[in-house]
């Protein structure tokens, strides 16, 4: 019985993934071509922004297509709100942001798709409070990716839902994925400063901030991961999700 359910969702996911791959494979090269042939030395930022935005769309459409249950929607919304409220609580300390930690927990407990959605929408919602800007799609993409990866690795059995592995994953994800992705936005915003010099400058000056962010994520996961996952598991068991 359980096996059948799994294979059915597997098959549906495979179908949906094809749509996503087609979309990404067609649109992104087209955008790069438009940039190369029509914009020459400018428009890097709009093009990069469009590519990042486009790569979010398949995930959103797939989630919509699945018609998620009300319970899952509300759980995701409540995790997003927990993430945003906890960011607001540490508002005074720059870069001490618990968002990534909450999103990793969401990815591990609620699965790949819910992890991505929690990440992407948490970035979007928190920017309703802290201000939307050209950085929003990049943050959405980076946090969504972290939730996605946490879910994928957990399902593959590579990321046990224990304190230490989660903390290590969280630190690495922030330092290697989130930081550089968001720094790339800062780098591309200087229109023609695209040189190795500016790249080195932007990434190096971002490094201290990313290290603080990574360390705080590790700390949040060490302190909160076990009890958050326990609570989510309890809710899942109690209500049969």
């Amino acid at each position: 019985m359980r096996r059948e359910v799994v294979t059915d969702t597997e098959r549906r996911r495979a179908g949906r993934t094809t749509v996503a791959i087609v979309l990404i494979l067609l649109c992104i090269p087209a955008l790069i071509a438009v940039n190369l042939f029509f914009m020459r030395d400018r428009g890097y930022y709009p093009t990069a922004l469009a590519i990042v935005g486009l790569s979010l769309i398949p995930f959103f459409l797939l989630y919509e297509r699945r018609k998620p249950m009300a319970r899952e929607l509300v759980l995701v919304a409540s995790l997003i709100a927990i993430a945003v409220v906890s960011r607001a609580a540490f508002f005074m300390l720059p870069q001490v942001k618990p968002l990534a930690a909450v999103i990793i927990i969401a990815g591990v407990s609620l699965g790949v798709e819910a992890g991505f959605i929690t990440g992407a929408l948490a970035a979007f919602v928190s920017n309703f409070i802290f201000g939307q800007g050209p950085w929003t799609p990049w943050q959405m993409f980076a946090l969504g990716l972290i939730g996605f990866l946490a879910g994928v690795l957990f399902r593959a059995g590579r990321l046990p839902a224990k304190r230490a592995p989660l903390a290590i994953f969280g630190g690495m994800a922030v330092l290697i994925l989130y930081g550089p992705i968001v720094d790339t936005a800062a780098f591309l915003i200087f229109p023609q400063g695209l040189s190795w010099h500016t790249a080195a400058l932007v990434y190096l000056s971002g490094l201290p901030f990313n290290i603080i962010h990574a360390v705080s994520t590790v700390a949040f996961l060490l302190i909160f991961a076990p009890f958050m996952i326990e609570k989510l598991d309890r809710v899942k068991r109690k209500f049969g999700l």
Binding site: F60, L61, Y63, E64, K67, P68, L73, V74, V76, A77, S78, I80, A81, I82, V84, V85, A88, I117, L121, A122, F124, V125, F128, I129
Partner: peptide, 23 residues
């Protein structure tokens, strides 16, 4: 266009002040 996601959005936005008050 994205009914489920906008529902998540509007609920999350409403939960934020609710959670602050609950804390």
């Amino acid at each position: 266009i994205i009914p489920s996601l906008s529902l998540i959005l509007s609920m999350a936005l409403r939960f934020i002040p609710a959670y602050k008050a609950q804390i």
